[in-house]
Design a protein around this nucleic acid. Structure first.
Lengths: 207, 207
DNA sequence: ACTGCATGTGTACAGTTGTTCACATAATGT
DNA sequence: ACATTATGTGAACAACTGTACACATGCAGT
């Protein structure tokens, strides 16, 4: 009975994932979301959930994987747009903020997951951040920046940069997306943070 | 009926609060904790909850207030122990890490709350961090450090310091409290982060 | 044409949830 | 001494939860 299978494969799966993100975007915390709630939001019967995920945590894990894709797309855009080094920081921050606003729910999920209750999700996000920091280090080497730093000191610097940006995420997400003034403030402040860090790195003496 | 009121006033209230923290310490996320769960953990009948709190969120808010006390106690200790400036960073980080380990559940709650679902709790934690940053700025002025920075640039620097330390919190909490080696690593890494930031601040030219 | 698989649906059930109500006791102020 | 207040209790309820089961349908490979 009912209109079965007029859908393309994986459609319900996708609907469930975006439903979860939608709930997160509405202010709910991922850890407090239940199966029935997700399926209701997705317009699907509860039983369908089990066809695709073992549990809500499992869904979270698969979201983290997609998070990787979003970040990589962002990085590619940043690489394409940042050509000369002088506007590097400002431009990168702008791109990040733009992505955070465009994928608000996604980044909210990420911000929650960092201190979330699923150890696996936590580790996944952490590893995405590590990957991000590594790519940043590679880029800096390629651009011949901070050449006096040892590999490990460069890693540390990039780690700090990524953390700083990640923390700014909570600033961005805590203000209304339409409040352009506040967004601009966060952008400016984050830019200055990074300048401070990179000035520090420039004067750092690798043992 | 039952052994009523052989307790001192506020005892149940306290039991409920520590019960909530205990649950958080066990890995549960605060947003997913319910009234019945808290009361069960506290060994109290569900109805008692309403005598002290309007809801779980309300309990969270009151926890944030106590958080302020913990932080202030920590700061006092730091001020007493850090007399000469050269070991300032290392010593402060050590004190922070020690407090984070000693009040693990509390700090876990704080880390969760930063991206939690209660806007009020979020704002409370944020304001605690601001307070912390301001005190830090005062201390630095008193110690005649970074005197070339304008007030607003000093504020920015302190803000970044506090954020960096706060992020390290998630590192500390994600490893086992008995793993002394890993703890040491986090301590070292955080120290270097702060050194990097302060070197940057030392070379910063206030417009 | 037939079989197995992936995907979807509806019904059912036992356990848990938040909240209310009427009631009991000790402490407190008069 | 007595009324009030703060704090505790147990029973009850309707709403919701996760999960299991039997079943229907289209698709892919034989």
């Amino acid at each position: 009975m009912a209109d079965v299978q007029r859908r393309r494969p994986g459609e319900t799966r996708e609907k469930l994932m975006t439903a979860a993100l939608t709930l997160v975007g509405k202010g709910r915390h991922f850890a407090s979301i239940g199966i029935r709630e997700v399926t209701r939001q997705a317009g699907v019967v509860p039983t369908s959930f089990y066809r695709h995920f073992r549990s809500v945590d499992d869904l979270g894990l698969q979201l983290v994987d997609e998070l990787g894709l979003v970040l990589r797309r962002m990085m590619r855009e940043a690489r394409a747009n940042v050509l000369q080094a002088d506007k590097l920081i400002e431009e990168s921050v702008a791109i990040f903020v733009a992505h955070a606003l465009a994928n608000r729910n996604f980044f909210m999920f990420m911000a929650q997951g960092l201190a979330g209750e699923s150890r696996a999700v936590q580790e996944g996000i952490r590893s995405e951040m590590r990957y991000f920091a590594n790519e940043l280090a590679n880029d800096l080497r390629r651009l011949r920046l901070l050449e006096h730093l040892s590999d490990s000191d460069l890693d540390m610097t990039c780690d700090l940069v990524v953390r700083t940006v990640a923390f700014s995420l909570t600033d961005i997400l805590s203000i209304s997306p339409e409040d352009d003034y506040q967004i601009g403030q966060v952008r400016k402040r984050t830019t200055r943070f990074l300048q401070l860090v990179l000035i520090g790195a420039g004067h750092w003496k690798s043992a």
